[in-house]
């Protein structure tokens, strides 16, 4: 089974002449583990950060091709701050902000965050817990990758 996965990955590697690098920042280690697993399985190279601070250190050294950021880490708006910093450094990188804040409560990103949305240019806001296939479709769209990998 593990060999199968390995083989599948190998095929994907050959299909994409180079691997896209995705930075995932999330302080929920379980979420990080699961997302990393599925995205690696889909053929991406994953860099993980467990905090806003760690992510900031990483982006100062490495330019990822895409970033998936949790909204609430050290502070309630860590994802926004990171997104802002990433866009400033690398304006061409697509940023996805993910959160488990429930849309049932009316406003997805909290009251104070509403006005922040104007200056934060995240490319996509996603509710945590969406299906992996759906997330992959969105990532492919943002990276302009055609077809299924």
């Amino acid at each position: 089974m593990i060999r199968d996965i390995y083989l599948k990955k190998l095929v994907i590697d050959i299909m994409n002449a180079r691997k896209y690098k995705i930075l995932i920042a999330d302080d929920d280690t379980d979420y990080l583990f699961q997302l990393k697993y599925y995205l690696e399985k889909a053929g991406f190279e994953i860099i993980t950060a467990e905090s806003q601070r760690e992510a900031e250190k990483i982006i100062s050294e490495i330019k990822p091709d895409l970033a998936i950021l949790d909204l609430m880490m050290e502070s309630d708006d860590s994802g926004f701050i990171l997104s802002y910093k990433i866009k400033k450094l690398y304006p061409d990188i697509p940023v996805i902000i993910s959160t488990a804040v429930a849309s049932e409560t009316g406003i997805t990103f909290g009251l104070s965050a509403e006005e922040d949305k104007r200056w934060i240019k995240a490319d996509l806001y996603l509710e945590k817990g969406i299906r992996t296939e759906q997330l992959l479709t969105e990532i492919h769209k943002l990276l302009n990758i055609n077809g299924n990998s």
Partner: peptide, 10 residues
């Protein structure tokens, strides 16, 4: 809802 959904998702 954030605190309860995060463990459920995991």
């Amino acid at each position: 809802s954030h605190e309860l959904k995060a463990p459920l998702n995991a």
